[in-house]
Nucleic acid binder design. Structure first.
Length: 449
RNA sequence: GUGGUCAUAGCUCAGUUGGUUAGAGCGCCAGUUUGUGGUACUGGAGGUCGUCGGUUCGAUCCCGAUUGUCCACCCCA
């Protein structure tokens, strides 16, 4: 028997780890709910046909496929197939790659039961057959929230407020909300007379963080842009402040282009809706986001004091359900938190240190078999009062029982032996300060806090 | 898919210019204290040095392959 192990890029979450993860998960879920989002869950696996072709050429390769049951090679003429054409014949299901496509599938299937605007959140694991590295796992959790069926800029403003609320509750202050508008990107390309290179250009400027302005200029040159065109594109990267002045400047620089009007209008409106609350927001012209379906405002959140990729991303899209053949357009906007990265960032910044998690409040320590049944109704009283309570399952040595309490960070030990039972009492020990007192079995619970 | 890195106790890591009994800290178990923990002291368990092959009288150490880890590129949360 070889040593047990788990697949690469996956992790076990110990009780200590789960306590911290739940804190993040619950925080995000509570904030979503406080904005009126409703929960949706979808299966871990989808039909492969639902997933393929939605994430670009490379995306399909990152899908985990599930082998069909039974003798899946029975009727195949293997010699006539290559591996690519083989896959659809032997695998009809795959693990979900994100939560947006399942949402689109759900909406397409249940269009007639849904009334718009439809606000849903979804917190579930997703799987990608990527090569693992820092902040990248093959199984990780996404926390999505989307609003479908409205073009209102209020959604954008709400999501910004959701970001600020969540991070404030988590105690994470070193972050930056980056905002951009796809139409701004289009306008720049149009102005530079390089519309046909739109995709390539967005991919290049998206790397500005890593390769710097000079690097961007170089790569733009390498795809055939002349110096003037490169300068036009680079002009996007200088202005960082989200303000009416910046937007006015863009409006002038890019006047005459087809797309600029919509971008200016949206961003101005967004500023109005946010009021003065533009804390930690930057207008980042280099933000592009790979997914093609975004059409207007796009977001990304990055930690500023830790080297880590984005911990959240999102944006507005025009037609979510188009690929599923729904004739009616369903536009919307969504964001997603990556809580695995969020966890890594918080761990690195030691934001969990103040939170001592205890797995129980009260431990009953029976000294003999008779004491166990004596403790049973008393433990129920504690639980009814809201204390997490357990009874040590065997009358072991007291030292062992108290060690157990320490290891679980339990504050109260209630010791019951022959003498307590005789006098209808319990001995209550506070394991934090070491004080101990006796009490009758009616009032003892009042001493616990 | 491409490149690099590392793999020794449950965990974090030493170490051997290739030589016979492979170490530390933490953790775990037991005792000092037969009903009082978190401190201290004493003792104990636990490793075919990732796997397979090669070189050698001899390999945990050198070489090759393989698997896994971590990191970077691509892409992304």
């Amino acid at each position: 028997m070889s040593k047990p192990s788990i697949p690469q890029g996956t992790r076990d979450f110990s009780p200590e780890l789960m306590a911290k993860r739940k804190f993040i998960l619950n925080t995000i879920e509570n904030v979503y709910q406080s904005f009126g989002f409703m929960q949706l869950e979808t299966p871990a696996m989808e039909n492969l046909s639902t997933l393929t072709g939605k994430y670009g050429n490379e995306g399909d390769q990152l899908l985990f496929k599930i082998l069909n049951s039974g003798d899946y090679l029975k009727d195949l003429a293997l010699e006539t197939l290559d591996s690519k054409s083989l896959i659809p014949k032997i695998a009809e299901k795959g693990l979900r790659y994100d939560l947006t496509v399942p949402l689109a599938r759900f909406v397409a299937m249940h269009r007639h039961e849904i009334s718009f605007p439809f606000k849903r959140y979804q917190i579930q694991p997703v799987w990608r057959a990527d090569r693992p590295q820092k902040g990248r796992y093959r199984e990780f959790w996404q926390c999505d929230a989307d609003v479908l069926g409205t073009d209102s800029l209020l959604c954008e403003a709400d999501f910004i407020k959701i970001y600020q609320t969540v991070f404030s509750k988590l105690g994470l202050h070193d972050y930056e909300i980056r905002i951009n508008h796809r139409k701004l990107l289009e306008a720049v390309c149009e102005k530079a007379d390089a519309k046909q290179h739109f995709r390539t250009i967005t991919i290049i400027i998206d790397k500005a963080d890593k390769i710097g302005i000079d690097g961007v200029a170089k790569e733009l040159g390498s795809i055939g842009l002349d110096a003037a065109q490169v300068q036009t594109v680079l002009s996007l990267l200088n202005k960082k402040e989200l303000s009416k002045q910046t937007i006015e400047a863009f409006s002038k620089d890019l006047s005459g282009t087809e797309s600029i009007g919509k971008a200016i209008e949206d961003l101005n409106k967004l500023i109005d809706l946010c009021g003065n609350n533009l804390k930690q927001i930057v207008l980042d012209g280099s933000l592009a986001r790979g997914l093609d379906y975004y059409t207007a405002c796009i977001f990304e959140v990055v930690p500023t004091s830790v080297k880590m990729g984005s911990i959240s991303g999102g944006g507005r899209y025009d037609n979510l359900t188009e690929v599923f053949g729904l004739k009616e357009k369903v536009s919307g906007i969504g964001i997603s938190f990556g809580i695995d990265r969020l966890y890594d960032v918080m761990e690195e910044l030691q934001l969990f240190v103040g939170q001592t998690s205890s797995f129980a409040d009260v431990l009953f320590c029976p000294m003999d078999e008779e004491a166990i049944s004596y403790c049973l109704p008393l433990a129920d009283i504690c639980r009814e009062k809201g204390f997490k309570t357990e009874i040590y399952p065997s009358p072991s040595k007291l030292k062992k029982q108290l060690d157990y309490a320490n290891s679980k960070n339990i504050k109260w030990a209630i010791i019951v032996g022959e003498s307590e039972i005789e006098k209808r009492e319990v001995s209550i020990k506070n394991l934090v300060d070491g004080n101990q007192q006796t009490s009758d079995i009616v009032d003892f619970v009042d001493l616990i806090h």
